[in-house]
Write a protein that binds this DNA or RNA. Sequence first.
DNA 1: TTAAATGTTTAAAT
DNA 2: CATTTAAACATTTA
Length: 284
Amino acid sequence: MPELPEVETIKLVLQRRIIGLTIKKIQILSPKSFIGNPNSAEGQKVLKIERFAKLLAVNLGEVNLLFHLKMTGQLILQGESVKREGERYIGGHPTEDMMGKMPNSHTRVIFSFSDGSKLYFNDQRRFGWVKIIDNGKLTIDNLGPEPLEKEFNWQILKKNLLKHKSQPVKVVLMDQSVVSGVGNIYSNEACFNAKIDPRTKVSNLSNLQFKRLHLGVLKSLRDGIAHGGSTRAHFRDPEGHKGYFLDYAYVYGLDKHPCKVCKTIIKKIQLGGRGTYYCSNCQK
DNA sequence: TTAAATGTTTAAAT
DNA sequence: CATTTAAACATTTA
């Protein structure tokens, strides 16, 4: 699920825990999930961790480990000190088995660090991947502006959205070349925040609505990060309670539930082939 | 049994 | 040719 807030939260956790550690060993359990030669990463020290849209780049000097978790990817960090505290750091769409023993049947790659801690890349559907990328080649094509950077304003959002003027606004928001890191969850939430019907064609939006949408995107992403990502990127795991998925959402996954603002029943429709949730009273 | 699920790319249809 | 829709990827759960 990892959209921007989830990946950002994973980044913050990893920056705190694995920078300065050396990768001792990389075990590839699913060849499809690892692209490149793992030898070039083994023995290297983690220097820097960055996020680009939904991608995570772990810099090892000459090379980077570039992660894309796609739909069901998870990163689970279990360290020696972490284990003693009965704690584990996780990021990704929550499932029962991510609280259990590692590795498990969905573990695709295991990174072992110099201090004994391990990072597990789990991915049920195997859409996600880890790639070795030379440092000079770490540019990702077709990425729009990072919404949390101050250069991002409503005029830029408007200009980029207008690349697909006849499309519903909710669909265009998910286009990574329009704005980086917004996926299905936050696109739904952003439209709710902006009080805009997700079906509205981009060409029919007023400047006022573009402004509201700009703020709505920011609010949804910031709320997501404030909640540790919609998936709870770190988790205290003595007995394995369930991560609470999206308790804070206004509309995503809440069809047939009353709107948290006006009690109108949330509707679910299909837009661009994706589940789309909205309140017909709040969003017009 | 069918449908849907956090994402992206590619092919097919309009 | 540009734009839009569907399919594909793989697996599980409702």
